[in-house]
Write a protein that binds this DNA or RNA. Structure first.
Lengths: 205, 205
DNA sequence: AATAAATTTAACCAAGTGGTCAAAAAAATA
DNA sequence: TATTTTTTTGACCACTTGGTTAAATTTATT
């Protein structure tokens, strides 16, 4: 149980909530203050401006999103086990933070420059790890050839989009097929892994 | 060459541009007026309020996004040909309007109610077409079993996400692998089709 | 307890914000 | 041409915005 009574942490929690729900342009400093249960001036006392406070949250979100990238592929395990671990980890993150991807992508669409200032080199350095191993598997004839960026895009798309479209798809699928969208999301780990496995694997005869 | 000299069309074009780039909360009526080269009051003369003008654009975007759904699957062709046609059509739409998906998803994340008012029944009615045919293929043992909603999510994810993450991925891939992201996007039609084909197809022996 | 430092607040401000309105300009009608 | 109608504009308004500041309050230091 982390104590949350200090105002700085209360502000950050409120800002996180409001910014992610409303976006930078839609969020109001007063709203954040109310959410944190403090005076609006105190926001400026702890964080100088709306933009500074937003930057803090934005970087935090970027870290959350990119955290799974490296760790899953650093261990020495068979290729498909790493893939599986990555999928599990990423879907857990998305389940806990379903609104992060659209928030993040929307903000960089509004203001791409913001991202340039915070891209840390090390975030995608481990991507080179997966790439070399992918190439090894391809060269060994164990999986079908595919360009690494495309594999990453395919995988990311199948992981992220179902969470992003939830507000649109949930009511549609409920009405059309009478399925609960949360059930769908819970099945994603297995589905994505099998789909990707079948797409890549070459059956040994 | 469509003439665009009438103010209503000029306003709509400007609103489209500004709303999609900035979002509802970030867009300014003055900005739209400037973009259209007219007085701000004229916006309210033609469209009563910011929200009304936005609704007009939002519905238009929704139509653009969902337009491919039906048409690709209505014709009587083999399953994978329909898939291929859908992929081609959808990537063409995204190439022409790369910012639509994030704009759309962001706005329904901010305000899901807006969508409920405009969801027209017929938009996903043809989805039932693809579902029945998918089931037929599965029952015939020609493709691997997969739940229809998951197949749709997999496909949509692989189609949409690469465009949505362009502002983030383009500089990263340029620096890390020295690849031009537009080349990547141009390869998507083929890649997605092959990936999906391999994931679903059962080789006849 | 007295004083200094840090925290919190209420009152306030300049700069926008969406929106209104009456008058000017242009177009249509007589 | 005169007049009515439609279109366009500039001036304006109430309200909200992020941000400031000085005073009040709490906390730490002596």
């Amino acid at each position: 149980m982390v104590k949350i009574d200090n105002p700085e942490e209360k502000i950050l929690e409120a800002a996180r909530k409001v910014f992610i729900r409303e976006g930078l342009a839609g969020a109001r400093m007063q709203q954040i203050a109310d959410e944190a249960g403090i005076n609006k001036s105190l926001l400026h006392y702890y964080f100088r401006s709306k933009d500074k406070l937003f930057d803090r949250i934005f970087i935090e979100v970027f870290r959350t999103i990119s955290i799974g990238m490296g760790s899953s592929f650093s261990e020495d395990k068979p290729f498909f086990e790493k893939i599986k671990k990555f999928i599990d980890l990423y879907i857990d993150v998305l389940t806990k933070n379903p609104y992060l991807p659209i928030f993040f992508l929307s903000e960089i669409q509004h203001n791409p420059e913001r991202l340039q200032n915070i891209i840390e080199k090390d975030i995608f350095k481990n991507v080179s790890g997966i790439i070399t191993q992918l190439m090894m598997e391809i060269n060994a004839g164990r999986i079908r050839p595919i360009s690494p960026p495309h594999l990453i895009l395919n995988l990311m798309g199948m992981l992220v989009l179902p969470f992003a479209v939830k507000p649109m798809m949930a009511p549609i699928l409920k009405r059309q097929l009478d399925v609960d969208y949360n059930d769908i999301l819970n099945e994603r780990k297995e589905i994505v892994y099998n789909f990707l496995y079948n797409a890549l694997k070459i059956d040994e005869k």
